[in-house]
């Protein structure tokens, strides 16, 4: 499997990253090189191998239903680029 310009553009769009026209060639070339490394895995038959999603073997520990995070507003908005009356403000979202 390889990656072409269109796929790269699609990925960039999904990730909200812009690739300029003059960067595209290099970006695609680099991605291809790395993906060639991935394709090495085709050598291994994994049909009957279970995917490993957790290395810890832990189960989820659960928290009690307590409200412990109160008066957080300052901590939440103190680094915000733009706020008004406690709201985050962003450019207009057209529905």
């Amino acid at each position: 499997m390889s990656i072409d310009n269109l796929t790269a553009r699609k990925l960039a769009n999904l990730a909200r990253i812009e690739i300029s026209e003059d960067q595209l060639k290099d970006v695609v070339e680099n991605l291809r090189t790395i993906i060639r490394l991935f394709d090495q895995l085709d050598e291994v038959d994994t049909l009957s191998v279970k995917p490993m999603t957790d290395i810890t073997g832990h189960f989820l520990s659960q928290r009690d239903d307590l409200v412990i995070d109160t008066d957080c507003q300052d901590k939440i908005i103190s680094n915000a680029p733009k706020v008004d009356h406690g709201f985050f403000v962003v450019p207009r979202i057209i529905d």
């Binding site: 939440i76 008004d84 709201f87 403000v89 450019p91 207009r92």
Partner: peptide, 12 residues
């Protein structure tokens, strides 16, 4: 969206 015609406000 009602606060301002150019911006959207976000409450989490």
């Amino acid at each position: 969206h009602e606060q301002n015609p150019y911006t959207t406000y976000l409450d989490l």
